[in-house]
Design a protein around this nucleic acid. Structure first.
Lengths: 183, 183
DNA sequence: ACAGGTTCTGACCGATCGGTCAGTTTGACA
DNA sequence: TGTCAAACTGACCGATCGGTCAGAACCTGT
């Protein structure tokens, strides 16, 4: 693995676990077995490293959300749900990062992109919700799923195999998001 | 309001909004209209300030959880749910803090207490769950509710009156946690 | 007016932060 | 073997961090 890619992974893991502000370039360098100068050789600043760490996840989320904004959610929410859960499972660390630290890292361009995306997501669901309660269902389903995956990881609570987790998540979330007019 | 109490509130708000590591004593002093030295006069260290900021919330959560651990959750989950939701609504900022930054602030005694509490909460629910899916329901319900309240606040998404929020939360969460053996 | 405790402050400390730069090491190719 | 670019490093910089300390300002009771 190239030093670039290794640094990216190490930085992502540390940023997610300890926070961006609390993670020093020195620490990242030590974990990579390099000097701080070498880190800054591959990424010209700490901000660039953060950008490299989470940009792929943002791109992916944008690719999921953008086409939906044109046509709305419709009644077929299962497809969206599966895509969203897979996104969560694949990009846990990145999601963990900008869920927990996004609000505190404003003015970092890549974080602003992520925050804008979360905001668009919230608005999209608001537009597809008939009531405040339904809006809250969206929030609990998406936020709860994201949060739980992150917590399970940081507290390393034991958990079943991934596909079982995935199936349970989809089942619970589809129950929460079912487009039932009267309940 | 005494300087002590004012500093506590300012620190809590800043810690929750920007993160503990990213919030300097200088910043807190400016917001309070005092010098950094004065802050350190009232709280002998930054850690003590953090402690003062979140300890009340931890005590309250402990008071909710401890008596339950002896007798289990039982079938009357409504009472617990109301208590929990009220706790969330009253201590949003504190919950926001140790949800987002708890894992990254280990070795700070008061944070360790909070993390231990979250862990006890997770274990308590695990003990009251028959299946992995039910365990996940707990996680999504509690994590989702907590996360949503925090996000609504940090992104300041508009939201209805508090009691409506409270009622909707309790309704959705009780649906998720309903002790239904077969579904 | 005086005394004494509380509150507050500026100057200062060592440590660490992100970042710069000149120069060394390394590896592939001619 | 000599060459050259890529990879890497240590020394250093200004800024900021949390924290210390001696003393000024303020308040209250006498």
């Amino acid at each position: 693995m190239s030093s670039q890619e290794e640094l990216r992974k190490i930085a992502l893991a540390e940023f997610a676990a300890s926070g961006y502000a609390a993670t020093s370039l020195q620490r990242i360098a030590e974990l990579a077995g390099l000097s701080k100068s070498s880190v800054l050789y591959h990424y010209s600043s700490k901000e660039r490293l953060l950008e490299a760490a989470i940009a792929p996840a943002i791109d992916r989320m944008e690719a999921i959300l953008t086409p939906l904004e044109g046509v709305g959610l419709g009644d077929d929410r299962a497809a969206f749900l599966e895509g969203f859960v897979d996104f969560l499972l694949e990009y846990r660390l990145e999601v963990n990062m900008f869920i927990n630290q996004g609000p505190s890292l404003v003015d970092v361009p890549v974080i602003d992109r992520a925050n804008a995306l979360v905001y668009r997501l919230a608005e999209f669901f608001a537009a597809n919700s008939a009531s405040i309660e339904e809006k809250m269902r969206f929030g609990i389903a998406l936020g709860g799923a994201a949060y739980m995956l992150c917590t399970v990881q940081t507290l390393d609570i034991e958990v079943g195999p991934t596909d079982e987790t995935r199936a349970a998540l989809i089942s619970i979330m589809s129950e929460l998001l079912a487009p039932v007019p009267s309940r």
